[in-house]
């Protein structure tokens, strides 16, 4: 079913909206959660929370990019779960992703005047200047927390190429953020 049709079902408060969302994006949401949590039960829970969250937000929100809208909710809920649950351990995918991102700019070096949203907007603006390959590889690694080998397989590249593209993109991002005055 077309995304707009699914959104119409949400607007009509039709519970079929959840079923259609699950049928179309359930696997995607689960993979986002499971990449972060590496736990099927917790990931299922995050996916269900995603649907509830979407149900509460639509309406009045009318997402223009429904898949991204859902992935962001799942990612946010999964990270919160990871942050607050002492039973859960950081998965290798998340550890690598976080460490590499921290390598771009450590928390204490980020200006207190720059909040997460400002930073996100700057990263978006930076990514828009990047070539398509570099941009999407960066997002697969640091938004979706895919491993290098998964990215290599997805984009039919060898792993060293992916690693070197990520390394160069992180360096350019560091430089860009410095120029934007984010670093203190």
């Amino acid at each position: 079913m077309d995304d707009n049709q699914i959104i119409e079902l949400y607007f009509a408060r039709n519970e079929q909206a959840i079923k259609e969302t699950d049928a179309k994006y359930g696997k995607l949401c689960f993979s986002v959660a499971n990449r972060i949590l590496e736990n099927n039960e917790d990931s299922e829970e995050c996916v269900n929370d995603t649907y509830l969250n979407a149900w509460n937000k639509i309406p009045p929100t009318r997402p223009n990019h429904f898949s991204a809208f859902l992935c962001k909710i799942t990612r946010l809920i999964s990270l919160k779960k990871l942050e607050f649950s002492s039973a859960l351990k950081r998965t290798s995918a998340v550890i690598v992703s976080f460490e590499e991102l921290e390598g771009v700019l450590q928390d204490q070096k980020i200006s207190p005047a720059t909040d997460a949203e400002d930073l996100g907007k700057l990263i978006s603006a930076f990514l828009r200047r990047e070539k398509e390959d570099a941009r999407n590889i960066f997002l697969r690694k640091y938004f979706f927390c895919d491993s290098v080998s998964e990215i290599a397989e997805r984009y039919r590249l060898n792993e060293n190429t992916v690693k070197s593209m990520l390394f160069r993109t992180r360096n350019r991002l560091r430089e860009y953020l410095r120029k934007e005055g984010v670093e203190v």
Binding site: H65, S67, R90, S97, L139, R140
Partner: peptide, 23 residues
């Protein structure tokens, strides 16, 4: 277990970029 600010910022990436990376 705190999420680094850079990783938190990734949640504010523009939607069209995220959906672009999906497809």
């Amino acid at each position: 277990m705190k999420t680094p600010r850079m990783a938190e910022a990734m949640n504010y990436i523009d939607d069209d970029l995220v959906s672009g990376a999906i497809t």
